[in-house]
Design a protein around this nucleic acid. Structure first.
Lengths: 225, 225
DNA sequence: AAGAAAACTTAACTTTAGGTTAACCTTAGG
DNA sequence: CCTAAGGTTAACCTAAAGTTAAGTTTTCTT
């Protein structure tokens, strides 16, 4: 199965968070929450969600401000952000789009519409991930078939190794921290030892060649041609 | 400059088309039009627009149907589609999202909101924008990738060196005192000897060129082009 | 449903890159 | 031309990553 899309909900009312969480988890999304803009920013940085739902009206740091700050963070620059507003506040919508929002959901929340919108936004957001096959430096990856080819030879990788390869190869040259990797492959709730990642990396190096998997000590790993 | 985004507007009322064309061209978009769903499909195939605005209510082939057909065409599968609806028709919105729409614009059309939405949609859909990396005097720094490039050559810096470079380059020309540096990189509680900084500076000079790292005796260091 | 096989995780140990330091050298600025 | 701040070097230390094999869990097979 494909990785569950992760959604971060930020709202100062626990009721709303519960409602969102309930509806979104029911649809199979991985949901995390935060009770204010500042915490939302923190969680976003750590979890790297695929989509963020931000309440416009929040004490301290409001949705607009939070949105602007999120857009400042390189790793979150392209995340999809949806605002939660009271209905028909066109003025806020205009300002919101300028702040970098991608869409609006109006209160009261309608469950079906919410889910439809989320689906549409996520479908749109992941063009990079939609690419099913890629080929880098003699290594071909076919995400559909769970199949990897190295110099023309097919290699059947186990799930975790494959996921790790897909993750690293999704942005060749980019360094993924151990935290990134754990969050993406194991999820934020699962806890596995640090050595686990090393072992999987080792297996990949064994099967696909040392030279493609670089260690950046104290930071993480990266994949290169 | 990047190529002008191309927008296709499909509506059976010439007035609406004129209004959209006027507003969108004013914003610098390349606009084409079609008076019904069938023609819209033809034009879409030929022009391969970046975004399509479809009126839901059209005789013969309505917006939903057109949308579905567009999604069938491989070269248009990922195009952004926005529907044009009478306000508050939630039922049509739900069906519309299922048909593959990405957003909705309600009539009557508000010029500013229209343009904001279009911008937001295109921003998201566009080919992944070039990551913001800073580039000073032949040195490029990409914080995401933990990667530095000097005159086109990639250099992988260890963590501390990278952090030091990021710090100094964050404000080129500004002098950072030793205390500044220690606080930022090591934290105020950690104590390391004075020579430690020198050594890291030395490594940076070695790898990126002496001339960029100036010593201000008795004060600190600064980074310059 | 039992047994086997494969995949995954862990623990204990080794290795190593990167970070720090100490000792000595150089230089700017008074 | 003296002195304190900074530069250089190489040795040392340590936290992080590599390795291996031994458990666990999952999944396939019969």
């Amino acid at each position: 199965m494909a990785k569950k899309p992760k959604i971060l909900c930020v709202d100062d009312e626990q009721d709303i968070l519960d409602l969102l969480t309930f509806n979104l988890e029911k649809e199979g999304y991985d949901v995390c929450t935060a009770l204010n803009g500042k915490k939302g920013l923190e969680v976003a940085k750590r979890e790297l969600p695929d989509l963020i739902i931000l309440d416009v009206m929040m004490p301290e740091m409001d949705g607009m401000e939070t949105c602007r700050e999120i857009r400042e963070i390189p790793s979150l620059k392209d995340v999809v952000i949806t605002f939660l507003t009271a209905r028909n506040e066109d003025y806020s919508q205009i300002a919101g789009f300028d702040a970098g929002a991608d869409d609006f959901i109006t209160k009261p929340i309608r469950q079906r519409l919410l889910v439809s919108k989320i689906k549409a936004l996520l479908r749109r957001s992941g063009p990079a991930e939609v690419k099913k096959e890629m080929s880098i430096g003699g290594i071909e990856i076919d995400r559909d078939k769970y199949l990897v080819t190295k110099d023309g030879v097919q290699i059947q990788l186990p799930k975790k190794e494959f996921e790790l390869l897909v993750l690293l190869s999704s942005a060749p040259g980019r360094v993924f921290t151990r935290e990134n990797i754990l969050n993406s492959i194991w999820g934020n709730d699962v806890i596995v030892g640090d050595r686990t990642i090393d072992v999987h990396i080792r297996k990949l190096r064994e099967k696909l060649g040392d030279e493609n998997f670089k260690t950046i000590k104290g930071v993480g790993y990266k994949f290169e041609a």
